[in-house]
Nucleic acid binder design. Sequence first.
DNA 1: TGTACATCAGTGAACGCGCGTTCACTGATGTAC
DNA 2: TGTACATCAGTGAACGCGCGTTCACTGATGTAC
Lengths: 226, 226
Amino acid sequence: MMTADGRHRARRGEGDRLRGEILAAAEQLLIETADESAVSIRAIADRVGVTPPSIYRHFADKEALLRAVCREVFIRLDDTLEKAATGATNPFDELLRKGQAYIQFGLAHPENYRILFMLKQTHKAPPDGVADTDLPGSNAFLHLQDTIQRVIELGGPDAPKPDAYTMTCSVWTAVHGITSLRIAMPDFPWPSIDEQLEMVTAPWRQAICPNEHRQPTARRARQRAK
Amino acid sequence: MMTADGRHRARRGEGDRLRGEILAAAEQLLIETADESAVSIRAIADRVGVTPPSIYRHFADKEALLRAVCREVFIRLDDTLEKAATGATNPFDELLRKGQAYIQFGLAHPENYRILFMLKQTHKAPPDGVADTDLPGSNAFLHLQDTIQRVIELGGPDAPKPDAYTMTCSVWTAVHGITSLRIAMPDFPWPSIDEQLEMVTAPWRQAICPNEHRQPTARRARQRAK
DNA sequence: TGTACATCAGTGAACGCGCGTTCACTGATGTAC
DNA sequence: TGTACATCAGTGAACGCGCGTTCACTGATGTAC
């Protein structure tokens, strides 16, 4: 028997092939249509070239499928942030790079970002019996907390020592604010992202690294790169 | 002829009565069900005690209805912020109060907040021929910009003088981040809102009012209130 | 004051649609003899 | 090497559902004479 569009069906051991194609198609649809409601079981099946019921051989229901998509996107987000961090010259620089990468990731894949952080958390609920810490989303968070811990330790003995966890939440919250508001209101006359990041971080830089001179972000980054 | 649930229908001049009831029902449904998809023409009509087609005598289509709901919510948000500002002892205090009120407003009416700032901007597009500045949403923004202008002027001659518009966007973005991430992920172990606000504003307070002593927000507020 | 009439707010039935999901099935693939 | 058989990935048809919207209508309200 052939698949609807002429592909041969998966062999015995290849059950995961279609599974992967389904996930890829779901993500593709999210990106292309930029419309969560366009991502239906039927549309996904269509895109893969398969009939809707065959989805159910790989996912219990739509909910489980979306949960799997979230998992993929979380992993990709974490990867992106970690890659962005390599090559940083110091923890503060690393934090800045991660922030920029986070925003760029969200703006480049707005509907993916949307299902992670702008919808009800249903899709993100762990399947029964899986601890929160096993979720790929928390990896990105823990990695960020790492960076921030090092930023805090960077400060001189007189610098304020905020709680790393609270500060991680605040940083996340800040970049999420920039990202999600732009996704929701792309037509608003936003200032440039660099301006916004500079405005948010400038006094922090001052407070945490009080012995450095205040300079525009971009200039500092360029100087460090030398 | 009587309405479906026994109310008398509106008299000639009272066309706006049902209109108002429809808007109220739509908002009620958003709040109660906390589920945008539960707000259908049919559900709204049911709630009002009227048949679905009668909605169309008051709104061209569902889109127009949601636009009207947004308008109402924007007005209420602006009111809430302005009320929160009265009684502030200085511009910085005013800004803080507005920030707190904004977050509380969002958390108290999460689905209302959601349709304003977490969905695609379709509902918020002005009807043809209406300038952006006529939208009630921009009132709240302009009022906030006012406050921030005064905060900036509060700083001594040596304090940094950031651009008021950019800074307004940043403040909005910051409180939106706190609000929307909590709405999307209510089960995350967030720090307290006060902690988060303090963490975001502390270095700013330092930078803008460098001649004041740094103190925890709450303590300062209490002292001022005396 | 009484009557004929126009208005128009709201009705009731129906439309076509796309959705998630189910069910019994088919037939290519792999395996045992 | 050839054949009978079990497996199970994917099919095709159908389900019931709630949705937004349309249409011709009804009958209470207000008005003109």
